[in-house]
Write a protein that binds this DNA or RNA. Structure first.
Lengths: 196, 196
DNA sequence: GCGCTACTATGACCAGTGTCATAAGCGGCG
DNA sequence: CGCCGCTTATGACACTGGTCATAGTAGCGC
């Protein structure tokens, strides 16, 4: 905590993502974001002249980049890299968080999609971009693991879909069961696609 | 439209589900629900003394029952009933709606989970119950189609997870691709589990 | 008609929102 | 010092939200 923390602007984007994860976009107030980021309220209009929508969009964008970057780290952490292992690692991040901190938070991109896809076109586009920023490196990783090029994109979409849905079920039921079920049932399918 | 429509109470629950589907829970106002249901505003506190939370919970509950009942109809509509065919029918309901009316609406249960899972315990429970009301008949249908008992529950969870996630992606990207991808990739897995 | 219940109508309240206007602090540089 | 940007501070505005209180109406058994 005492290490050199990032600037106020970055902190506010991060805090926005955290609060959106928990309460959704509409229920997250700007003042609340500033307070959570320990940032002055006056900075909001200075750094985000586009208002709440800009802040939300940047939070979504940030989440997409974050998810994309994690793919490489997951891969590096696997003993023997397989598609099923990668998927298991992705799901484990959520299982672990839920086991440790409770089921308070979901995926911010999902929250933004649910809350804004109809009402805010720019936010919907940001969410789509976030999913792309997540899927592209995932598909690339799958091809590296031996999945044929034509199949990798599809399987990446499937993995993200299933993971997002499992997160949703897990939160609703307050049980990580859906996450482990997804890994168990989808694993063989993923590995079968990687065999030459 | 001119047929004998249901009572105001039922209409309000239905309208609430529709509006939540589009804009999320927090962004849906009570007055808006009454207007959409063409119901008097004063009836809100009369039929739903528990306030907004009660209305939302009943809408979620209604959606769960609806999804559960559709399973039987989907099964009846299949030429040769298979798990993959059932899943395709479930996804097609969304693809068709999106193709016909645009990507304005998602799943109300998902919206309620994202918006209320952390803040309203009762709503979270209602969402969990809705998923159960959806999964139970789905698992029963799978066993009827030849899926071993131990596997049916898992596959039902997987189907719902993947479908919910694909709905999310489809809405964000305004493209039914994720839905068709889910059906294509998951179909063989489902049918393989039904073989004796 | 009476009385009772079910339902509707309407206005007020207060907490909360996003946004804006204005002004102050505050570094560094000339 | 004096000026001047980048930030921060603060209060006001207009508005909407859910909720409550109160009054009014409709229908029906008696």
């Amino acid at each position: 905590m005492t290490e050199a923390r990032p600037g106020p602007r970055e902190r506010m984007v991060f805090s926005a993502a955290q609060l959106i994860r928990r309460h959704g976009v509409a229920a997250t107030g700007m003042r609340e974001v500033a307070a959570h980021a320990d940032a002055p309220r006056g900075s909001l209009q200075h750094y985000f002249p586009g208002g709440k929508e800009q802040l939300v969009n940047e939070a979504v964008q940030w989440a997409g980049r974050y998810a994309g970057k994690r793919i490489a780290r997951f891969l590096a952490g696997l003993d023997e890299p397989t598609p099923s292992g990668l998927f298991a690692a992705m799901a484990a991040q959520w299982s672990d968080e839920y086991a440790a901190d409770g089921f308070a938070a979901g995926c911010p991109v999902a929250a933004a999609t649910v809350d804004c896809a109809t009402s805010a076109e720019a936010t919907r586009r940001a969410a789509a971009a976030a999913f792309t920023a997540w899927r592209a490196p995932l598909a690339a990783a799958l091809t590296d693991l031996g999945v044929p090029a034509g199949r990798a994109e599809s399987l990446a979409t499937l993995m993200i879909s299933t993971l997002e849905g499992a997160i949703l079920l897990a939160r609703a039921e307050q049980d990580t069961g859906p996450l482990t079920t997804a890994v168990r049932e989808l694993g063989p399918l993923l590995d079968a696609a990687a065999r030459p």
